[in-house]
Write a protein that binds this DNA or RNA. Structure first.
Length: 306
DNA sequence: AAGAGTCTCAACCGCGATGAT
DNA sequence: CATCATCGCGGTTGAGACTCT
């Protein structure tokens, strides 16, 4: 099927929009509204394709767009929704008033994704990256036993349809990552670390050379969708089935990736951010601390997002 | 100060979905 | 049912901004 050309092959302009073009588009939409993007640029006197006009409007010119930094609530919402929806940016954006899918996608790729990786969490599966532990066969066996409760492992099978219908398909891209997302408390138990089996001093582990210096090893208490989770949700998200509980908890990294009592080594200390009024990279990263603690309520109907 | 490297994000591209005929 | 036009989405790109050395 032939596609409508969009670009200078049709004598149409590409690239950054000028203020004049923006004004034309805004004026036209204010007068006539938008509907037929195909004919809009011609009617508006723009040398652009409809696709470009739609993108410019929806991602930049729309009056209800909220610009500026993402708030903590927004960031947490993005992470939570991403754990459910995967890269369904438009679905995520639909629950973040004023934010566009493009903006969220960019923010994910440039900020959140990096932070999760730094914390040793696979940003695709939202699970610990066991591959980064560079497991030798011996360590592999040991760690699997430590992370996974074998008595519950058999339960994983029954969740396969749900997991496959979700973003878990992407796991093939991130090879050998932990493939057991926690969709509810029961499943969470599958990956509940067995603290007793874990070395008393996690930092005694010698991280393999494959690890970057940014890598932060996961302590045994790693609890992703912990059942004691408390979080902050944007109350404006009326369609969400998430239930805000309490916004008063500490957001320090330690509240999420707690260091074993016998190993006080800093993981990525950023506790100071709480006292800082400035908006720093550390503060941004701190937003991600809570993402490791949320649970997906049982009543959450994921199909709503699909 | 300057060049290199890195980051950010607006914009583009290509594909699938959907609706009209 | 097949074809076509259009829309919307997700992945990717690249220019400019920023940071580092």
């Amino acid at each position: 099927m032939g596609r409508a050309l969009c670009g200078d092959k049709n004598g149409l302009k590409k690239g950054p929009w000028t203020p004049e073009e923006d004004k034309k588009l805004i004026d036209y939409i204010q007068k006539h509204g938008y509907g037929n993007w195909r004919t809009l640029p011609k009617n508006a006197g723009l040398q652009r394709c409809g696709k470009s006009c739609r993108l410019r409007w929806t991602n930049y010119l729309r009056p209800d767009i909220k610009r500026g930094r993402f708030s903590f609530e927004e960031e947490e919402t993005i992470i939570q929704l991403h754990s459910i929806l995967g890269n369904k940016w438009s679905a995520i954006a639909a629950r973040l008033p004023g934010r566009t899918d493009n903006e969220i996608k960019n923010y994910w790729n440039t900020h959140i994704r990096k932070i999760l990786l730094r914390m040793g969490i696979d940003p695709v599966t939202h699970t610990p990256r066991l591959d980064l532990l560079g497991l030798s066969s011996l360590h592999n066996q040991y760690l699997i036993q430590s992370f996974v409760n074998p008595e519950l492992l058999h339960n994983v099978d029954q969740y396969q349809p749900l997991m496959q219908s979700n973003h878990c398909h992407a796991q093939v891209e991130e090879t050998q990552t932990c493939s057991v997302p926690f969709y509810n408390e029961e499943l969470q138990l599958v990956m509940e670390p067995n603290v007793n089996q874990f070395p008393s001093n996690f930092n005694d582990y010698v991280m393999p050379s494959i690890l970057t210096e940014d890598y932060v090893p996961l302590p045994p208490q790693y609890n992703y969708y912990g059942s004691d989770y408390q979080t902050v949700m944007d109350p404006s998200i009326e369609t969400s089935n998430f239930h805000p509980i309490n916004s008063n908890q500490s957001l320090g990294l330690g509240s999420v990736v707690s260091t074993p009592s016998s190993s006080p080594a800093p993981l990525n200390s950023n506790s100071a951010y709480l006292n800082s009024s400035s908006t720093t990279e550390d503060e941004t990263e701190s937003y991600c601390t809570n993402i490791l603690k949320f649970e997906i309520p049982d009543i959450l109907d994921v199909n709503d997002f699909m």
